[in-house]
Amino acid sequence: MIQLIINGQPERLEQALTVHALLEARQLAGKRLAVERNGEIVPKGRHAETLLADGDRLEIVVAVGGG
């Protein structure tokens, strides 16, 4: 069991997942988005190899309407 903060919300995962697996589990895989982990960008090419750890803070963002 690991605990994360995703987009400001506390979340528990049964096991440590990769970024890619997390996105798949949330039906976000393949969407146009960007991920930051503990203040550092996780490039798309590394989603599959980046294993999340207890206490990680993730930001997952998309483009929305704005001026």
Partner: peptide
């Protein structure tokens, strides 16, 4: 121009994407 904001994290799957 577009803004950058937190996405829903699975609460609202299939939400249309501006891009």
């Amino acid at each position: 121009t577009v803004a950058i904001r937190r996405t829903n994290i699975g609460q609202n799957p299939g939400e249309p994407n501006l891009l």
